[in-house]
């Protein structure tokens, strides 16, 4: 029965082909000129719904990259905020002396005494040693050495890490270091005995070095004690959770070289 294709004149087949091809070409031309208009409007509504459904499924697979994009956007926004002197944002005190470079943590240790992390930005992206690294909640570490596309960061959770801090609202300064007792706490030493520091005060960077701008959050004071009758020590609970650290920003000081030259001359 189906063998009878020869019974139908070839011309009919060709005619049908031309008619259908005509419709296809009509669709092509209409679509490129009147994207939203005409007889396709009805079909478009349907296919938009199908796409939305497809996109919803697809989005689950894109969650990771979306996350990354948002983190990159954060970096951009922070940089933009820095450039705006009248901004009420805390980092703005640093004016536009610093810029941020976003990076992902590819390796992170928290269980040792000397903890390090590796980030996926290096000399190719303008990273140099002695640059500050911050996470979404505060200070994370300082770049120790760089490769082409990766950098080794000395974590705040490293007994060789030290940073100059300021305790607000009192404005007393001291040195913060990790006491290696817990990954959630650190210590401040060298504060004057008369400092009126009390639990609940916030610890931020002092801005005394060219590594970190001032007022980057670090943690909150939970306890204080007088050591040897001369200095006050304080225990700080860190804001940053180092175990869930994924995205970090590297702080590039735009005037670091200049400051370094000045200090060399002085010495």
């Amino acid at each position: 029965m189906r063998r009878g294709h020869s019974l139908i004149p070839k011309i009919t087949v060709l005619l049908l082909f031309l008619v259908l091809q005509g419709i296809a070409i009509l669709l092509m031309t209409r679509n490129s000129v009147y994207q939203q208009a005409g007889m396709l409007h009805f079909f478009n509504a349907g296919r938009y719904r199908v796409w939305e459904y497809q996109e919803n499924i697809h989005n689950y697979f894109k969650l990771q990259s979306t996350n990354k994009e948002l983190a990159e956007e954060n970096t951009r926004l922070r940089t933009a905020l820095l450039a705006k002197p009248e901004s009420s944002y805390q980092y703005a005190a640093a004016d536009s002396l610093f810029a941020f470079i976003g990076a992902e943590v590819v390796y992170n240790s928290t269980s040792r005494l000397q903890n390090y992390m590796v980030i996926n930005r290096g000399s190719e992206q303008g990273i140099t040693p002695e640059m500050g690294v911050i996470g979404n909640r505060g200070v994370v570490g300082i770049v120790q050495s760089v490769q082409k596309n990766y950098a080794l960061v000395r974590s705040l959770l490293n007994t060789r890490f030290q940073i100059s801090v300021r305790v607000t609202p009192g404005q007393y300064t001291g040195t913060l270091f990790w006491d290696s007792k817990s990954i959630r706490t650190a210590n401040i030493s060298d504060m004057p005995q008369h400092s009126s520091v009390s639990p609940g005060d916030t610890v931020v960077t002092s801005g005394f070095s060219e590594i970190f701008p001032a007022h980057i959050p670090i943690g909150v004071i939970t306890a204080t004690s007088i050591k040897k009758g001369t200095y006050m020590d304080a225990t700080v609970e860190l804001f940053q959770n180092f175990n869930t650290l994924r995205h970090v920003d590297i702080i590039r000081s735009l005037h670091a070289a200049e400051i370094k030259t000045l200090l060399q001359d002085y010495e």
Partner: peptide, 30 residues
């Protein structure tokens, strides 16, 4: 299978794929 009917099937599936995928209409149909 008769080419006449095959043309109709081809047109239908081309149109459906065009409708459901992003891009210019009529490409798959043609």
């Amino acid at each position: 299978y008769k080419t006449l009917y095959l043309l109709l099937w081809s047109f239908a599936i081309g149109l459906c794929v065009d409708m459901l995928s992003a891009g210019v209409w009529g490409l798959h149909t043609s």
